[in-house]
Amino acid sequence: MRFDPLRMPARLEGPMPGTPLFDTAWDALLAACPLILAQPNASAGNAGATSFDVRWRMSKEYCAWLYYVPDERYALSKLVESSDPTRNGFEQGCRAPAFVEDSRYPPDSLKYLYFLHNHPATPTNLSERDIAALAKMARIHGGYIETKAGRLPIGVIAFYSNSSAASPTSCDGFYEYTYGGAEVVRWTPDEEGHWQRTRAGTVTWTSGTEFRFVPTR
């Protein structure tokens, strides 16, 4: 979805067309990753590849919410692509309403677990601005939600693909940071498709809005 920058709606529509309710947040994440990376210009591939610069300039970030519904399952909102050529013509990133409306449920019954987006190029990591965005999310929605799986911290996710060729299976991994955590985590599938967790950086909070982030080099 795209919005008039001057008239961003209060709520983003959900669910994402064609997506079911998911039994686990993990299932929803693994479904969202290739969906987002298959969008037009969602991946410029590796920065060392030929003609990367051209693909990078055309690349776009998309974002969405992964939210928890009263049926004790997880859903994906529609995708937002928010580049604003009327302003300065070069800013990237993605802005989306802080709330979701899903006609199947009362608006205030939804709980916000992850803010999802793609990073269009590799190598990458969560950006400092992603972590700052999570701090804003926590101020809006609270840092934790109650689910059937217990109390979960809210988080921010950045999906990536090493290839610039969009395909329905494009997803080489993602970065995750959850509220209050000490680490940014990188998730990648091994050759057998099992997802492996590695540390991608350390985060230390010094106040409600100030933090230190040291990426793993």
Binding site: M8, A10, E61, C63, S82, F90, E91, Q92, G93, C94, R95, A96, P97, A98, F115, H117, H119, S127, R129, D130, A133, K136, M137, R139, I140, V156, A158
Partner: peptide
């Protein structure tokens, strides 16, 4: 608190 933005700015 109307929106959340990631990777904006420069």
């Amino acid at each position: 608190a109307q929106y959340v933005g990631v990777d904006t700015g420069a």
